[in-house]
Amino acid sequence: MNRALRRATPVALATAAALLLAGCAAGGGPEGGTSDADCLDVSSGPLSDGVKVEGEFGASPTATFSAPLEADELERTVVIEGDGDVTEDGDKVNVIVSAYSGATGKEAFSQPATIPVGEEEVFEAFRSGVECLPVGTRSVTVAPASALYDGAGNETVGIAPGESVVIVIDVVEVQETPKPAEWTKDVPEVKFGADGAAPTVTLPATPPPAEFQLKVLEEGDGDEVQAGDNVTLHYQGTSWDTGEVFDQSYGGEPAQFTTDAVIQGFGAALVGQKVGTKLIVTIPPQYAYGTEKSEQNPLAGQTLVFLIEIEDTAPAAG
């Protein structure tokens, strides 16, 4: 099976989890339950112990270590031990995940992500920083090239083939699915294009809404989208901060992805809606790309508006 990162998900919608996923598990892992025997058995070692991590918990940290760094096996060191609830199988955990080139020491990416506990499609190098750990924990994992992207690296973020990677993960919270409020005030004007042309969304001259809000423009009568479903749809994303369209599927084939493979607010806006529905949703930063601005993700800290047309839904393949 292909263990490359998912490429079907539009870049602007994917969370950092798109960088964390493998097509199938590289090895064993939890298959239910949360006992110690089910947790990934990753011990600390001289390489992970030698990484110095600085910065406020829950924000992008700074990691320093002697480069080049070459690892033969996974090592994990807990830098900060949290005092919250221990993550359990089936939890969706909001984290800050930061990765660094073992060859150069340079940051590859640092941004919020949601990692499902016990999900074998997530590389073990990332799961080791989440599974069976208390909320509030910060850990450092040193991963050999073979443990990520089949050793082929990831050119998207500047990780070269054969390169070891240093990963810092802050376990921020166990996710609770947000519920959008009804959007009744300062709703953008929407004009749909003819024959599949891109629609026009005109934002009002007001500050971005602080709330997660949704307005159904036209209700469909098809099947209802369930959490985890594979949904086919057209979308257009606009930044309320800049007024610019940053991504859309209009002008091409509809997009298709599961509700848990996109930013939290987008997925939550889909669940419970019927096929055929047209809606517009405003997503504040905490349910999009996080509140902290980031050079790696220019959409971080911004309120996003999505116009969505749901065309089909089906249970995700097991």
Score class of each variant (00 low, 15 high):
A22R: 13
T277V: 07
K92P: 00
G90I: 06
Y250K: 03
P144Q: 01
P178A: 13
V93G: 03
Q213I: 11
D89K: 14
G276T: 02
I167M: 01
G267Y: 02
D170V: 10
E120A: 14
G105M: 10
G84C: 10
L19V: 02
L279R: 05
G33C: 10
K106F: 04
V97S: 08
A181L: 13
P134T: 13
F266N: 00
V142D: 01
G252W: 05
I310F: 09
E163C: 08
D89A: 14
G290I: 04
D150W: 01
R76E: 14
V281C: 10
V271A: 08
Y100N: 03
V281L: 07
A8L: 09
V157W: 02
D89H: 15
C132A: 11
V93E: 02
G129V: 10
E173R: 15
T77M: 04
T202F: 00
G27C: 12
T206G: 09
I96L: 15
T87N: 06
A18Q: 11
E189N: 13
E309F: 00
E292K: 02
A26C: 09
V271L: 12
I96Q: 08
S43C: 04
G27Y: 04
D312T: 04
E73F: 12
F57A: 13
V174T: 15
C39T: 06
D150L: 08
A25P: 09
G23K: 12
N2E: 08
T177G: 02
P30T: 11
K274I: 00
E219F: 02
T258M: 09
P180R: 07
T303V: 12
D41E: 10
F123T: 03
T64H: 01
K293S: 07
M1W: 07
G318K: 10
L304H: 06
L307D: 03
L5F: 11
T291F: 02
G105N: 08
E176C: 00
E219G: 01
C132Q: 04
F306T: 02
E155F: 09
F257Q: 09
W240Y: 15
A314D: 10
Q248N: 09
A147W: 01
T200H: 07
T156F: 14
I308G: 01
Y235Q: 05
Q264S: 14
V53I: 10
T277W: 09
A8Y: 11
E219W: 02
T206F: 05
D195E: 14
I159M: 14
T141V: 15
D229Q: 08
V174Y: 10
I280R: 04
D38T: 15
G151Q: 05
A14M: 13
S60H: 05
D223R: 13
P134N: 12
T313E: 04
